[in-house]
């Protein structure tokens, strides 16, 4: 009972702040039109309300957060629905399917001899919808089979080419770059970024790093002895990558937070 009253008081306070913000923002609008100022004032206040509602989750789960979350789910579903329709159906299918439909949607018609082929995915798409009818729902497996078979076939060559062959070939690099003998190497040794020493060191680290990284992922043999040493070096190399990825993630999230703080204190409160 107490929590319900507290919630109502809180809602009233939030509504009051929202109203004050809306009136203030509408009054300080830059446009000559009163309607535009009121509308922009409402939109920015509502965006602030949603931002603060999401941040309220830091305290604990609450109705404001749930409201913003549900609104986001709905808006994003509607957005992707519209985007999918306009970009894929109108942008991809209609120009090849029919002249009259192309004219209706104001997209240029692409006349092709094999335009009939575009109906095959449509048929598979319609078959996919049979999932909604329990009696013939098994038919949707045919469409699923097309998706899975096509993706598997494409991935077979794509991954083999880009993730396997090209990575292997790029790892087999000269370990002694511009080698003119030990004497020449020692007499010209330097830590310059474009120097021979750094180039040789880099290639050694890449080659040994790739090999040791692969050894770490090889679980068919116990990681003992020389194999264990290589595996431990592999862990060290992998840790550098994980550290770099983690650093990037931290920076990305912090920059998003800075963006939101700038929005709250700059666009809304005009303090920044």
């Amino acid at each position: 009972m107490t929590s319900k009253i507290a919630m109502r008081i809180l809602t009233a306070i939030v509504a009051l702040i929202f109203l004050v913000s809306w009136i203030t923002r509408s009054g300080s609008g830059m446009s000559d039109s009163a309607f535009t100022n009121v509308r922009d004032g409402f939109l920015i206040t509502f965006a602030v309300f949603l931002t603060l509602s999401i941040f309220s989750f830091l305290y604990r789960d609450n109705p404001f957060y749930k409201f913003a979350e549900s609104l986001y789910v709905g808006i994003s579903a509607g957005y992707w629905m519209s985007y999918g329709f306009w970009s894929t159906i109108v942008g991809n299918f209609v120009p090849r399917a029919s002249r009259s439909l192309s004219e209706f949607f104001h997209v240029p018609y692409q006349e092709r001899a094999d335009h009939i082929l575009i109906y095959i995915p449509i048929i598979f798409g319609l078959i996919l919808l049979t999932r909604l009818l329990p009696k013939i729902g098994w038919l949707s497996r045919w469409s699923l089979a097309f998706i899975i078979g096509a993706t598997a076939g494409l991935n077979l060559t794509r991954y083999l080419r880009s993730d396997f062959i090209s990575q292997v070939s790029n790892s087999f690099i000269p370990l002694f770059v511009d080698w003119k003998g030990a004497g020449d190497f020692v007499s010209h040794i330097s830590l310059a970024a474009d120097g021979q020493f750094i180039a040789i060191l880099s290639n050694w680290v890449i080659f040994v790093g790739v090999m040791c990284g692969l050894v770490y992922f090889f679980f068919s043999k116990e990681h003992k002895g020389a194999f264990g040493v290589a595996s431990r070096i592999g862990i060290w190399i992998l840790m550098i990558t994980f550290g770099a990825s983690f650093g990037y993630t931290v920076m990305g999230r912090i920059s998003l937070l800075v963006g939101r703080i700038t929005f709250l204190f700059g666009d809304w409160l005009n303090i920044l």
Binding site: G209, V210, G213, F217, I237
Partner: peptide
């Protein structure tokens, strides 16, 4: 260099 080496091992 080291980051790329580990990424290559993962990608392979």
């Amino acid at each position: 260099v080291p980051n790329m080496a580990a990424k290559r091992a993962i990608l392979i």
